[in-house]
Design a protein around this nucleic acid. Structure first.
Lengths: 147, 147
DNA sequence: ATTCTCTCCACTAAAACAGTAGGAATAGTA
DNA sequence: TACTATTCCTACTGTTTTAGTGGAGAGAAT
């Protein structure tokens, strides 16, 4: 299970926006540079995040992006699902379940378990919690230098 | 999180072999037909499974494939990891952890949680358990017709 | 010898991924 | 009004991955 670059860049950008919350608008370029992300690609990603309702944007001079609500109200799962695009693409679902081969049934079961597990992880985590855990880890690392 | 066709076909084939365990060798063609899998593609997959130590094969007339050990001793996780090929590809790991940007650290954390969760699901499940659960579900479905 | 099967190598078509380029639209500012 | 800054939008491109196919070789049974 590997996140796409698109998702990775999106998360990296939104983490920056979360750290700045609730201050003003930040421009795409200023999100791209410190994390070294391809600017044009990032623009498209930010646009998707805005369409997903995670960001607000303002065009023109002094414009940019900001979170549309506080980090604690943004679930990482929603972000990832928006960014991956694929991921749980409504499989045709025609069959009601009794009538598939044992092999197909097994594959379906594995897929379901996997989806449940990943959804669990992703939906339980808000952007705020993600950032807390990251800085906790960072502090841990930091302190380990002095042991 | 979507399993590739390669993995799907491999699972569907090995589920058939597990149902037949511990009887003799089954030929690639006879695995492909009932599940309607592309024969040549399946051959390559079976070869990978043999190389992974999950199957034994016999060439020539009367040859074919069979499990190399009982279904209870085969973890679905090992199968999937073998078949996906990618999935937890040793990311370069150069950085010891303190020195990544907050964004990178966040992405890494999400990836780790996701990997843990999927490994958990997959490694806890043996081929035998998978089959039990599939037939349990099938029975459930079956009985629901009569409610 | 012949047939049957796995094994192995090379190749291809299509999709997904990871961007890039250029301009239109919009909002502030002089 | 003219100018500038920024998002918004469309279309395109190159690379990698996925999902196969084809054909020949090699070993085993009859």
């Amino acid at each position: 299970m590997r996140l796409s670059k698109r998702t990775e860049y999106g998360l990296r950008a939104i983490v920056q926006l979360a750290r700045l919350w609730p201050t003003g608008f930040v421009q795409s370029r200023d999100l791209a540079q410190p994390e070294d992300l391809p600017n044009k690609f990032l623009e498209a990603i930010l646009l998707a995040l805005r369409r997903g309702g995670f960001l607000e944007s303002k065009v023109g001079s002094g414009g940019g992006y900001r979170l549309s609500r506080p980090p604690r109200e943004i679930a990482v799962g929603d972000l990832v699902r928006r960014l991956e695009g694929r991921l749980s693409i409504k499989e045709k679902e025609g069959v009601v379940a009794g009538d598939l081969s044992p092999g197909k049934a097994a594959v379906r079961l594995v897929n379901e378990r996997l989806t449940e597990a990943t959804d669990q992880v992703l939906d339980k985590m808000t952007l705020e919690q993600l950032m807390e855990q990251v800085s906790k880890n960072a502090n841990l690392q930091q302190s380990m230098y002095y042991i």
